[in-house]
Structures are given as C-alpha cells and as structure tokens.
Deep mutational scan, measured.
Amino acid sequence: EQRVMALYDFQARSPREVTMKKGDVLTLLSSINKDWWKVEAADHQGIVPAVYVRRLAH
C-alpha cells in the first residue's frame, strides 16, 4: 500500500476531508484527482489537498 506524509497542517472543513498534522503518515487510497487525494488516517477515510502531501518511497 502507498503511503504519503503530510507536508503541512490541514484542518478538515467538511466530513469528506481529513484533518492532518505536518509529519503525519497516511495511507493513500486514490490519487486519480490531481487536486484532492483520498487517504485513510486512524480509520477515517477522506480527502486532502494533493499539494499538502508527498508520496513516500516504498
């Protein structure tokens, strides 16, 4: 499974989004949309801005 790391803090503004802190490692579920990526963090799935995360090497 692909992982991403948060580059910045992000506060969810809707139930579809995921709140994350800089340095958090999340599971990447989908990167089809270039602006918003779907991730999973602590059993919560949602979207985060793609520019706020970076793919981690396997």
Score class of each variant (00 low, 15 high):
K38Y: 10
H44L: 04
L7W: 04
A42F: 13
E17H: 05
I32W: 15
R13L: 03
R13N: 02
T19N: 11
E40I: 05
V4T: 00
L7D: 11
Q45N: 10
P15D: 14
K34N: 09
E17V: 01
A42G: 15
K21H: 10
A41S: 14
W37L: 15
V25A: 11
V18Q: 05
R54H: 15
H44T: 12
E17Y: 13
S31K: 11
Q45G: 03
D9W: 00
R3G: 05
A50Q: 07
R3P: 00
R16E: 14
H44F: 09
L7A: 06
V18W: 00
S30E: 12
T19Y: 06
H44Y: 02
V53T: 01
Q11E: 09
V53A: 03
V51F: 14
Q2G: 11
K38L: 15
Q11S: 09
M5G: 02
H58P: 15
R54I: 09
K22Q: 15
G46W: 08
G46S: 00
Y52T: 05
Q2R: 08
K38R: 12
E40K: 14
L29W: 12
V18G: 06
S14Y: 06
L7S: 01
V53Q: 03
D43T: 11
E17G: 02
V39Y: 06
K21P: 06
V4M: 04
H58Y: 14
W37G: 06
G46D: 09
A12L: 00
R54E: 10
L56K: 08
Y52K: 07
A41M: 12
V18M: 09
Q45P: 06
W37E: 02
A42W: 01
K22G: 03
M20W: 05
D9E: 00
K34L: 14
L56Y: 11
K21D: 11
T27I: 07
S31G: 09
Q11M: 10
Y52G: 05
A50K: 05
A50E: 04
Y8C: 15
Y8W: 10
R3V: 02
I47W: 15
E17S: 00
L29R: 03
L7K: 11
A50D: 01
Q2T: 06
L7E: 04
R13M: 03
L56F: 09
S31M: 12
H58I: 14
D35T: 07
V25I: 12
W36E: 15
A42M: 08
K22W: 04
D9A: 11
E17N: 04
V25K: 10
A42D: 13
F10P: 04
K34Y: 08
V48T: 03
L29D: 05
E17T: 03
V48L: 04
A57Q: 14
Q45V: 13
T19E: 03
S30I: 09
L7M: 12
A41I: 07
S30H: 06
G46K: 08
N33E: 12
D35P: 01
Q45K: 13
V39S: 01
R13C: 09
W37Y: 11
I47P: 09
A50M: 02
M20F: 04
V18L: 14
V39P: 09
F10T: 03
S14G: 09
K34V: 03
P49H: 08
D43Y: 05
Y52S: 14
Q2V: 09
V25D: 08
S14E: 03
N33D: 14
W36H: 09
